[in-house]
C-alpha cells in the first residue's frame, strides 16, 4: 500500500513544501488568489477524505461546516469586534461542536441514509444563513469582514495570505498523514471495510465515526474561517448544496483514501475553470466532460493516475537496464 512507503513519502513531503514555497514566485500574480482558494478547498477535501475515503462515511452537507465557521468568525469580528484569531478559533470550535451534536444521531445511519441525513443538515444550515437576516445579513451577504491580523501583523497582500493558507494546509496535511498511519488510522480503515469485524477487534465503532466526523468538520471550519478573512465578504451562496457536492467531487476525482489525491483534486478543480474561461460559454460542457472522462478511465482518481504513470515509468526504466531491475525487485523482496 502506498501509505507504507516511509522514505518515499518523507521526500514527497519535502517536495510538497518546496512547491508551496516556490509557486507564488513562479506564477503570475493573478494565480495567487486562485491558489488561495485552491488551498482552502484542499483543506476541505483533506478533511472530507478522512471521513469518506478512510472511514467510508459519506457527507453531503460538508459546506455547512465550512459556512458555519465562516459566518461565526465573520459575525464575531465584524459585528462584535472580536480580534480575528479569536473569531477563527470560535468558528472552528462551533463547526466541531455542531458536528459532534449532529454526528452522534446521524452516524447511526449508513450509506444512502447517511447521505440523506447530512444533505438535510446542509440544507437547513443554508436556509438559516438566508433567513437569519439580523445575524447573517441574509441573502445579500455579510460585508466588511476584517482581513486576518495576528501578532501585530495584518496579512493584507495575496502573497502573504497565500502562505498563511498553504502553510495551514501543509500542517493539516502532515497531521492527517500521521493520523492515517497510526493505530487510529488503521481502525478507521477497518471500519470502512467491515464495522462488525472492527468491533470484534475492540474498536469502538460509534466513537471513531463521531471522532472522524468532528475532525473533518474542524478541517472544514478552519477553511471556512480563513475564507471569510480572505474574501472579507460571506454570502449563503458559497455554502449551498452545490458547494458540498463540489467538495465531494474533489475527493472522488482526487482519489479516495489518498491525501495527495485530495490536494490534487482540489487544486485541479479550482484551476480548471480558470483555464476553461477562455472558451466562455462552453466551459461547463467541457468541465463536465473532463469529469466524466476522468472517472471513466481513472476510477481511483488522480492519485491512481499518478500511481499508474509511475508504474509505467518504472517498468520502462527496468526494461532498459535489466540488471538494476533485478536488483531492485530483489531488494523489495517481492515474489513474482
Amino acid at each position: 500500500m502506498s501509505s507504507n512507503r516511509g522514505k518515499g513519502s518523507a521526500a514527497g513531503l519535502a517536495a510538497f513544501a518546496a512547491i508551496i514555497a516556490a509557486a507564488p514566485f513562479l506564477l503570475p500574480d493573478y494565480y495567487q488568489s486562485v491558489l488561495i482558494v485552491a488551498g482552502l478547498f484542499a483543506i476541505l477535501s483533506m478533511g472530507l477524505n478522512l471521513l469518506m475515503g478512510y472511514a467510508g462515511q459519506i457527507s453531503l452537507g460538508h459546506a455547512a461546516f465550512y459556512g458555519l465557521s465562516a459566518y461565526a468568525s465573520g459575525i464575531l469580528t465584524t459585528t462584535f469586534h472580536w480580534p480575528v484569531p479569536a473569531g477563527i478559533a470560535a468558528g472552528v470550535v462551533l463547526s466541531g461542536v455542531t458536528a459532534a451534536l449532529i454526528g452522534i444521531p446521524t452516524l447511526k445511519l449508513k450509506g444512502h441514509y447517511l447521505a440523506m441525513g447530512t444533505l438535510g443538515f446542509g440544507v437547513i444550515v443554508y436556509i438559516v444563513f438566508n433567513e437569519a437576516v439580523g445575524l447573517t445579513a441574509g441573502p445579500s451577504g455579510l460585508t466588511g469582514i476584517p482581513r486576518l491580523s495576528a501578532f501585530g501583523k495584518t496579512f493584507s497582500t495575496d502573497r502573504e495570505y497565500y502562505f498563511v493558507v498553504w502553510g495551514t494546509a501543509f500542517v493539516l496535511f502532515v497531521l492527517a498523514r500521521n493520523l492515517v498511519r497510526s493505530r487510529m488510522g488503521r481502525a478507521l480503515r477497518a471500519i470502512h471495510t467491515s464495522e462488525s469485524a472492527a468491533s470484534v477487534l475492540g474498536i469502538d465503532v460509534a466513537r471513531y465515526k463521531a471522532f472522524v466526523f468532528v475532525l473533518s468538520a474542524v478541517y472544514a471550519g478552519i477553511a471556512g474561517a480563513l475564507y471569510a478573512h480572505f474574501v472579507t465578504f460571506v454570502s449563503p451562496g458559497s455554502f449551498s448544496f452545490h458547494a458540498s457536492i463540489q467538495i465531494v467531487t474533489m475527493v472522488v476525482l482526487g482519489g479516495m483514501a489518498s491525501l495527495w489525491g485530495a490536494v490534487a483534486g482540489a487544486v485541479f478543480l479550482t484551476v480548471l475553470p480558470e483555464w476553461l474561461r477562455a472558451i466562455e460559454d462552453y466551459d461547463i460542457l467541457v468541465y463536465g466532460a473532463i469529469l466524466v472522462l476522468t472517472m471513466r478511465f481513472l476510477p481511483g482518481g488522480l492519485a491512481e493516475g499518478a500511481e499508474r504513470a509511475r508504474g509505467t515509468l518504472v517498468s520502462a526504466f527496468r526494461r532498459k537496464s535489466p540488471a538494476s531491475a533485478a536488483a531492485a525487485s530483489g531488494a523489495e523482496g517481492r515474489k513474482p
Binding site: 500500500m1 480503515r189 477497518a190 471495510t193 462488525s196 469485524a197
Partner: peptide, 8 residues
C-alpha cells in the same frame, strides 16, 4: 472471514 481487504 471479514479481512480488511485494502489493508496489508
Amino acid at each position: 472471514r471479514h479481512v480488511f481487504k485494502p489493508l496489508s
